[in-house]
Amino acid sequence: MKRLVLAVTLLSLVFTMGCQKAYYSTMEKMGYDKREILADRVENARESQEEAKEQFANALERYKSVVSFDGGELEEKYNILNDEYETSESRAEEVRDRIESVEDVAEALFDEWAEEITQYSSSKLRRDSQNKLTATKGRYNKLIRAMKKASAKMDPVLAAFKDQVLYLKHNLNAKAIASLEGELTTIRSDVSTLIKEMERSIAEADAFIKTLK
């Protein structure tokens, strides 16, 4: 895996503005087929979701601590929430990017696989390969649905955090801090739902990776 990560890192510098077809072609010449690249990207997406899950949980705890305001610098409270919001937004964007990269290589892999099935002269081997492709696509579709569902759950949480940060930015007083408490129950529920969906998606990623090895 480390060998693949190094190769991907180096090639990403070369093909940042190039086409994916050239990228995959070069990777294959270096000994990395699309299946291996897909497994690597699913692993990366899994890791980014794990990091996002932890970040949103941390952001919620920070939010609770600000709501429980008992004195101190109000601007400091705002900075705490703003930092957590910006970090959460960054983690969310990374998750979305990683999901897109998974979709890209999966599409390339399945297109290539389907085309190569037509090249079999043996009907038995052709049927066997088609069955494996169908099964792999089925598992993949289940995975990508779980990833996208979890990703979508980030949006209401980010929107709520942004609202509170903006409100606090223009109302730096104890009354404004107190008003945030009214949103705490909703945000806690949204974060709880998000974490559950993230955990389901992570479990799907683990299961899918095992089928590719």
Rank of each mutant, 00 (worst) to 15 (best):
I99A: 00
E89Q: 15
Y78T: 15
L158P: 04
E107F: 02
K153P: 06
V66W: 11
R145A: 15
Q130I: 12
L109A: 01
A152N: 06
T16P: 13
V191G: 00
V165F: 07
I187A: 08
E28F: 11
S179F: 00
K175L: 02
M17L: 14
E115H: 08
Y85T: 05
E36G: 04
G18L: 15
E94R: 11
E181W: 02
E204A: 01
Y140V: 08
S189K: 08
K124Y: 13
E84T: 05
K213D: 06
L184A: 14
E116N: 12
F161D: 14
L109D: 00
K2V: 12
T186W: 11
A207F: 06
E112K: 03
V157K: 00
E107R: 05
E107M: 02
A160Q: 06
L125Q: 11
L166C: 11
A45Q: 04
M147V: 14
Q130N: 01
E43I: 10
L109F: 00
N131R: 03
L6W: 10
N141L: 00
R98F: 09
L143N: 01
K196G: 11
T134P: 15
R139W: 01
R126D: 06
N141W: 02
S151T: 03
I99T: 11
K162T: 13
T186N: 10
T211M: 03
K148A: 07
